[in-house]
Nucleic acid binder design. Structure first.
Lengths: 255, 255
DNA sequence: TTATTTTTGATTATTTATGATTGATTTTGA
DNA sequence: TCAAAATCAATCATAAATAATCAAAAATAA
């Protein structure tokens, strides 16, 4: 196989899977680790991927992306995929869709097929991906937060105030009966809250691990957003809001 | 077999298979490796395929856009490096720096060392890279243009109107005595013009190939921006505006 | 025909790619 | 925190591929 060809394949794999280990590439491409490392070093230099300890992540992943490689080895990717795919399927023609920053919503973009809707986001990486998918994209301006590569702050809130979304897709750090949807950052919470307030329908994308978790700041009550998740939550939650869930790769009941 | 006929076949094979080795072509066409290499060299020169070590790949294999960017980045690398490095060195504490979208200004970000300045940009990729370098970053919001991944449009212009930059670094497609600084896109020109208008000092980063070139839309007169370039331009230009230039890796005279 | 140009294949010195090894660095897990 | 394990960059020898050169063959022109 050509060196260039192999590097093209690596780039494609990294972008598809978002994160990949050296071992996986050795297996996939049937070559030595030394060669894979050289390829990764080169591709990183060309800014086609981001090299991290243990492998590489997509140039379109958030921050250093180091977590992504580790996370990948630990967490159940399929559940998140199913959540994202379902969420994307909700988008219809002429929708004006707000996409919150965060890794869960980032995956959602890969599954979007509707090109007649308009998309708006406060995530730098999200905007880049949306554009790469040739979707009609607006990015909200303002101060960019380093860790999450998201636009936050009062300017951002002001901008959102002027818009009215038909649907918004949000990420969250915690979901609890008492505290509602919570996130660790005050500024980010304010942006989320405003987006939800200006949205006809809001969906929170969250895997089951988020249930029962409470973070520092509440950005919405349970009843203000429908939840899309990967397991049947306890009855309490279903009394509070609409929940769509998937179980063991089998679609859950419609709510 | 005719030489031309053989080359047509090679082109077809490369496009079909996306990537092919010299050995495969030798086998297929029953000729020597030397001949195949000559063919590949020629076809590459004609931009019908891309010659790589070991064989060739299709011109539209990975993504045509990526190759275009890659090629663009390769052009005048050393010159651009020096231009960028010098431009970055101009940034001082408490500066409020506008960074225009475009490849030249993207390189500039790699050389920024001042962490006490604030940075604002309309380039998605620029914002991402600024953040990666842990710099205080603001992105201008609005509609994102697909090809250049830059924010443009009237919203964007309105936002710029509210700001006052101490320095702005701009890219350009053409520099001419009569037409001034020009770019092919009307919307982009409007954004550039507004940024320059709201900047205390504006610098245009341009390699020598841009001189004498006129694109569709003028976004500024020569005298409104200092030029940072890689060759001594003709006297005419130096009469019009301040020009800093580098020659053969040796710093040019101060202007 | 003969002279000239073009194409081709072989040769060779040089460049590039690869896999193994090793000592250093980073991560992990107690 | 420390030590073990995993990963890494650097180095080296080998193999593969390349560009440059040259002579022969083929095509073309005079």
């Amino acid at each position: 196989m050509l060196t260039q060809e192999r590097r093209d394949i690596i780039t494609r794999i990294v972008n598809e899977k978002n994160a990949v280990t050296v071992a996986e590439l050795v297996e996939e491409l049937d070559t030595s680790a030394a060669t894979i490392r050289r390829d990764l070093t080169e591709l990183d230099k060309e800014r086609r991927i981001i090299k991290v300890f243990g492998g590489a992540t997509s140039i379109n992943s958030v921050s250093t992306g180091e977590d992504a490689v580790k996370e990948k080895l630990l967490k159940n990717v399929e559940a998140k995929d199913e959540i994202s795919r379902y969420a994307a399927s909700l988008i219809v023609d002429d929708d004006f869709v707000y996409i919150d920053s965060g890794t869960t919503t980032l995956k959602l973009i890969d599954y979007i097929t509707n090109t007649k809707a308009k998309y708006i986001t406060n995530g730098i990486v999200h905007a880049k991906r949306l554009i790469e998918r040739h979707l009609d994209t607006i990015i909200i301006g303002g101060r960019v937060k380093a860790r999450t590569e998201a636009v936050i702050g009062s300017d951002c809130v002001d901008v959102i105030r002027r818009y009215h979304f038909t649907k918004s897709f949000m990420g969250t750090n915690g979901i609890s009966i008492k505290a509602g949807f919570t996130t660790p950052d005050v500024d980010e919470a304010m942006v989320k809250a405003e987006a939800i307030k200006h949205s006809y329908m809001s969906y929170v994308l969250a895997d089951h691990s988020k249930f029962g978790v409470v973070s520092s700041v509440t950005f919405a009550e349970l009843k203000s957003c429908a939840i899309i998740t990967d397991r049947e939550p306890s009855k309490q939650y279903e009394d509070e809001t609409v929940i769509k869930y998937f179980q063991h790769k089998v679609a859950g009941k419609e709510n």
